[in-house]
Design a protein around this nucleic acid. Structure first.
Lengths: 279, 279
DNA sequence: AACACAAGATTGGATATCAATCAATAATTT
DNA sequence: AAATTATTGATTGATATCCAATCTTGTGTT
């Protein structure tokens, strides 16, 4: 079993890429320590891991926040992702065997079925996974880890945007990339990968006024249930007033939340949300 | 100023890529804590950073060691590096302006002069730096960080090999890559990048019996002097017997070194070096 | 020689504590 | 009353000490 800080880092990563913890959200050491029922030090180590992964941002004497990349950085992440996947495509077009192509086709088919069945959630997951499977076929663990990190960061980016456009052509893209590659049309496949990612970025209109939907305690509760029932039970009702009173309308609660701030739209609160961003 | 654990991680990174701390070297928490005059926790945080960077390897209840990549992993690192630099080359061949080409040529020229002057150390540094400058011209910070990490890991690899072959053609490669790219011969440039890295890997004969040259205290002493005179002075004579008695012959001291082990070639010591490797 | 067991050392972690810094409020001055 | 300053509170960065689990080592026994 790995270290506890790694476990906590994994849970936080999960919560971030699930969009339960959104960019800009404060990750207070004491708060997280209570939630996970560990000491602050373990939380700090987990936050260091997140920061190294680009998912959190640690500001000296101010604490850790879920990373809030700028539009510039978003473009760079997608450029890097394109570069990596194009490179992998070039490798696969030479070296991939029949079993590999079959796995890719099978994956596309599974996603197609999910779309047909109207299971959008599964289709979305499979759509993400395609890229991971694609890179895994390169049989390069180092590349896989780099790619996985980039994917996590793109997933984080999706919390920042307000576009849910039609993802159907993206599925087509996957299928066509496989076709082109297997036919040896590498150039066209690479262009399609580029277009594919550009079409995603084009849908990006970074909305700077996206506020967190949940406090860390609420966001992390689901991930704790499997660990310790007692802990989950003791954590869940930690902010009953907030849960019932503020989130009822699913509006724009708060970023910082020192205690139980009833008016997060005050001058002070707004000022805080604009402070220390990587704009 | 950044956190102390980051500072220590930077120093350890420096020491590793300087080959003063070699793969397999034990990085004991208590030992490092004394060397840097900080608490064990700060050291632990620094080691987590190193591990995330692929330069150290943390084994539960056994501690941290300088990473000792397998031949397989070495190949993967170079493959990833090739992939990244080829991708950057493709981008630069389209988008790089005259100033960029000039910078690359100027860098190659500086290295050529260093070689001509017989300043091998400088030439070596410039040779490494070429790749960094190359990627920096892509103006993608995310890509730069990924590349820098890969370069650090390749530098680590060089501690494991026993080949110091002729690097002169590598300088030629740099020059030719710039030429080819500027002339728009992207395909050939990418092939040359591939060949360039392959020629480096070809020189790799992983010697599994490379032992550390220095203890952490000795390896890290130079990096501490700038920090605090008192600390450096108090650290330097920590192992006077070892410094004068064991390193006189510049032989193969020890891997673990719990205290002042005089016989590291015993059965137990050998067993330890072969334990837990990422073979 | 092989095995088992006890002692020692090291890591992973908890807790309590302290200084430095930041945020927010209260107090003071103009 | 508005603006500035001082104070208070909270949070982070870091240390020291302590404890449990685990690993290593060395010894003793068969």
């Amino acid at each position: 079993m790995s270290s506890r800080s790694q476990t906590i880092a994994d849970i936080l990563t999960r919560a971030i890429i699930d969009h339960r913890l959104v960019p800009g959200c404060k990750l207070g050491e004491r708060e997280l320590a209570e939630i996970f029922d560990v000491s602050r030090i373990v939380v700090r180590q987990a936050l260091i891991r997140l920061a190294d992964d680009g998912l959190a941002q640690i500001e000296r004497n101010r604490g850790a926040f879920v990373a809030k990349p700028s539009m510039q950085e978003a473009m760079e992440i997608y450029d890097a992702l394109t570069l990596v996947e194009q490179g992998v495509a070039a490798q696969l077009s030479d070296r991939l065997g029949p079993a590999g192509w079959a796995e890719l086709r099978q994956h596309v088919e599974r996603q197609r079925q999910a779309v047909a069945a109207g299971n959008d959630a599964l289709a979305d997951v499979l759509g993400q996974e395609f890229h991971t499977v694609f890179v895994r076929l390169s049989r390069n663990k180092v590349m896989q880890e780099i790619h996985a990190q980039l994917v996590r960061r793109t997933t984080l980016l999706r919390s920042l945007i307000t576009a849910d456009f039609d993802y159907c052509n993206l599925l087509d893209d996957h299928s066509r990339v496989v076709d082109l590659l297997e036919k040896g049309r590498l150039r066209q496949a690479m262009d399609l990968i580029d277009t594919h990612h550009r079409s995603v970025v084009r849908g990006y209109i970074m909305d700077r006024e996206v506020f967190p939907e949940m406090t860390p305690a609420e966001a992390l509760a689901p991930y704790l249930e499997a660990k310790a029932d007692g802990a989950a039970a003791s954590v869940a009702p930690r902010r009953p007033a907030t849960t019932s009173g503020n989130d009822g309308g699913a509006a724009h609660p708060h970023v910082h939340l020192p205690k139980n701030d009833p008016a997060p739209t005050s001058r002070a609160a707004r000022k805080k949300t604009n402070r220390g961003l990587p704009t």
